Simulated scan of single mutants.
Amino acid sequence: MNPFFYRLTLAHSRLDAEIRREQKQRAPDPFRLLQLKKLKLAVKDRLHRLIRSRPEGMA
């Protein structure tokens, strides 16, 4: 597995866990949630771009 791909998947799962943790708070911070969700989406977009840029035979 590509180390960059691995780091992105790790960041994606950490952001997901952080979002869940924030949502469980008694009074979740909506701005923090928005920021975390934007970061998670950015990581997801980079993962998809990385997958699409791979040659056909390497999938």
Rank of each mutant, 00 (worst) to 15 (best):
L15R: 05
L15A: 02
L15V: 01
D16H: 13
E18K: 05
I19Y: 01
I19G: 04
I19K: 01
I19W: 02
R20D: 12
E22H: 05
E22V: 14
E22Y: 03
Q23K: 11
Q23M: 09
Q23D: 06
K24V: 03
K24T: 08
Q25T: 05
Q25F: 04
R26F: 04
A27C: 13
A27R: 15
A27Y: 15
P28A: 04
P28Y: 08
D29M: 05
D29S: 14
D29I: 06
D29K: 06
D29G: 09
P30N: 15
F31L: 15
F31H: 06
R32W: 08
R32T: 13
R32V: 04
L33D: 01
Q35R: 14
L36A: 03
K37R: 13
K38H: 08
K38R: 12
K38Y: 12
L39C: 03
L39Q: 15
K40T: 04
K40V: 03
K40Y: 08
K40I: 05
L41G: 06
L41Y: 08
L41M: 08
L41I: 09
A42P: 00
V43W: 01
V43P: 01
V43K: 03
D45P: 00
D45F: 11
R46G: 07
R46A: 12
R46I: 07
L47E: 07
L47H: 07
L47F: 07
H48K: 11
H48F: 09
R49I: 06
R49S: 10
L50V: 03
L50K: 08
L50A: 04
L50R: 09
L50Q: 09
L50N: 02
I51C: 06
I51E: 13
I51L: 14
R52P: 00
R52K: 07
R52E: 11
S53R: 10
R54S: 10
P55T: 00
P55H: 04
E56R: 14
E56W: 12
G57C: 09
M58H: 02
M58G: 05
A59V: 01
A59D: 01
